[in-house]
């Protein structure tokens, strides 16, 4: 499970704004994540966790530094090149679910496959399988407004895994859920990581959730202050 890391960040910085109003969100982050890892990112509010996730997820570009994804430099790719990498290798889960409104769970899950140009029958089958995988078989025709928060997040997870990505990125996936619902989501992520070897990077504020992962990276003020394997860390 070692070999070349799937994600390797070297000296990543991110500066927002211009002139007097600049914010140094990341100040030189080095982070290496191997295939099959389940990593939690913790840290105080405004420390740069989301910024780090967005750069890792190729939604944003670093100001400086190197980003090797699967061994290839991706820090300076164009918008469309990054879109293609996201389409084929990355899955996202957000705190606010981010499902298309007035659209069935099934169609929400099919979305990434549409951009992959897969035929309808194949899309349908894969989306049904993903919904079953997250325990929502039978809910495929429900719209987001007809589902609970926990169920909506499951649809979002199904959408993130339907195209069999290499890495799942989750920014506070349980941030809007109660403890019991959060527990269920964490069990699901843990299971996906263990049985399917899916690499997961997750931002969380909750130490109990972080404890479900196998490695906890702590970000403080734009820098990694601690990087520990679960069980060993203090």
């Amino acid at each position: 499970m070692s070999a070349a890391p799937v994600i390797e960040l070297r000296g990543i910085t991110k500066v927002f704004g211009r002139a007097a109003a600049t914010v140094h969100a990341l100040k030189g982050v080095d982070l290496s994540i191997a295939s099959g890892e389940f990593v939690s990112i913790m840290g105080p509010s405004g420390s740069g966790k989301s910024t780090l996730m967005n750069i890792t997820g190729l939604l944003d570009q670093p100001t400086a530094g190197h980003y090797l994804f699967g061994g290839a430099e991706v820090g300076d790719l164009s918008r469309d090149e990054r879109a293609l990498l996201r389409r084929h290798f990355l899955g996202f889960v957000f705190q606010g679910y981010n499902l298309l409104p007035r659209t069935s769970a099934l169609e929400n899950v099919e979305l990434p496959l549409i951009y992959q140009g897969r035929p309808a029958a194949e899309r349908h089958e894969a989306a049904m399988a993903a919904l079953t995988r997250v325990g929502l078989a039978g809910r495929e025709s429900h719209r987001p407004s007809e589902l609970s928060g926990g169920q909506q997040q499951r649809v979002a997870i199904a959408r993130a895994i339907v195209a069999r990505p290499d890495v799942l990125l989750a920014d506070e996936p349980t941030g809007n859920l109660d403890t019991a619902r959060s527990r269920e989501i964490m069990d699901l992520l843990q299971e996906l990581n263990e049985t399917e070897g899916l690499t997961i990077v997750m931002v969380t504020h909750d130490p109990k959730m972080a404890a479900c992962s196998r490695r906890i990276v702590t970000v403080v003020d734009g820098l990694i202050s601690d990087d520990a394997t679960v069980g060993e860390a203090a």
Partner: peptide, 16 residues
Amino acid sequence: TREIGIRLAVGATGGQ
């Protein structure tokens, strides 16, 4: 706007 963001996140190109 949010819908567009979702589509971009799952891999839609600007052209699409």
